[in-house]
């Protein structure tokens, strides 16, 4: 029984993916087409980049609710610098991410506040800042080199941003597998006390994951601004939901210590297929929200490690 549950848990994301594809294909025959899959890939770009940053935060045992705010702030940074920097406007976007990550990290490590609260606070502040900076209306991007670089196609039929996200994913995959930093992140998420006594500098690690998550959200913001040709006041609103769900749906438990880049890609794919499919079969945005919330709870339920009770003494 337990073994069966374990197996089911392991293959849960794949099963879910197959079920979703089956449902949406019967709902609308346009779903299973190459064009639609390029659309899904496009939609994945922003969520995936942010999810890869979130992966480190979750593996460390924390959560970052402020990613949507960081995405919007960095998109504004892009609009402010794009005319001077062109495609390099991604750099100020990343810097915004670094600053936001430092704020989250400092509150977490030095004020010792749970990250759920810290990032709920910063999420609100960041969103407020976005409204102030945009004045409540969108700021358009007209810089051609920038838009061509991020939205164009150097290879026919494949968008540049899809290629870039593949490269970014490969880099993060390598970092997660081979960097000493990632090994220490896992240890801190596995058991903070053990990690401390093993000589791991946990404050450094905690700051590190939030800065990393900030940078990734900054990059995601840059891609998002290019996709929508603008920075908008509501950009990234509610996005933390998709991003966290993507990580968890892939099979990374909220309890920390374990995780993988490839399953995060899978989780993102599921989330994006879900959104795309619900659009295609014509569900309203309100119902979509209901479904996504349920899916997130379901995903956590399947992955989280409820410490096995001590059965035998």
């Amino acid at each position: 029984m337990n073994e069966k549950m374990g197996k089911l848990k392991k293959y849960f994301p794949f099963i879910l993916l197959i079920i979703l594809v089956a449902i949406f294909t019967t709902g609308n025959s346009r779903f299973l087409t190459f064009q639609n899959f390029m659309v899904i890939a496009q939609q994945m770009v922003v969520t995936l980049i942010a999810a890869l940053g979130m992966l480190f935060v979750i593996v460390e045992g924390s959560i970052d609710l402020s990613v949507g705010g960081i995405v919007a702030l960095s998109a504004i940074a892009v609009t402010m610098t794009v005319d001077q920097l062109g495609a390099f406007a991604i750099i100020p976007a990343m810097l915004v991410g670094v600053v936001c990550g430092l704020i989250n990290g400092c509150c977490f490590t030095f004020l010792k506040i749970p990250t759920f609260i810290v990032t709920m606070g910063t999420m609100t502040s960041f969103r407020g800042l976005v409204l102030i900076l945009t004045g409540g209306s969108q700021i358009m991007i007209t810089n051609r080199p920038f838009l061509n670089f991020y939205n164009g196609q150097y290879i026919d039929g494949v968008n540049n941003n899809v290629i870039m996200v593949i490269i970014i994913t490969a880099i993060v995959w390598y970092v997660f597998k081979n960097f000493a930093f990632a090994r220490e992140v896992r240890a801190v998420g596995g058991a903070e006390k053990v990690a401390t006594l093993a000589g791991i500098k946990i404050n450094k690690i905690k700051m590190g994951v939030f800065v990393l998550c900030g940078i990734m959200a900054g990059i995601a913001g840059c891609f998002q601004s290019a996709r929508s040709y603008a920075a908008t006041p509501t950009m990234g609103d509610g996005m933390e939901m998709d991003v966290i769900a993507a990580v968890v749906l892939g099979g990374t438990p909220m309890s920390g210590g374990i995780g993988s880049v490839l399953t995060t890609v899978l989780g993102t794919l599921i989330i994006c297929i879900l959104s795309n499919g619900m659009n295609i079969i014509g569900l309203s945005a309100d119902i979509q929200k209901v479904v996504k919330g349920i899916i997130l709870i379901f995903a956590v339920c399947m992955t989280v490690d409820r410490k096995r009770m001590g059965v035998i003494k």
Partner: peptide, 17 residues
């Protein structure tokens, strides 16, 4: 609680420190 992380592999625990 302090010595090792039980759901990590034996090897990961040995090289942790």
């Amino acid at each position: 609680l302090e010595g090792l992380i039980v759901n990590f592999s034996i090897g990961d625990n040995i090289v942790m420190s």
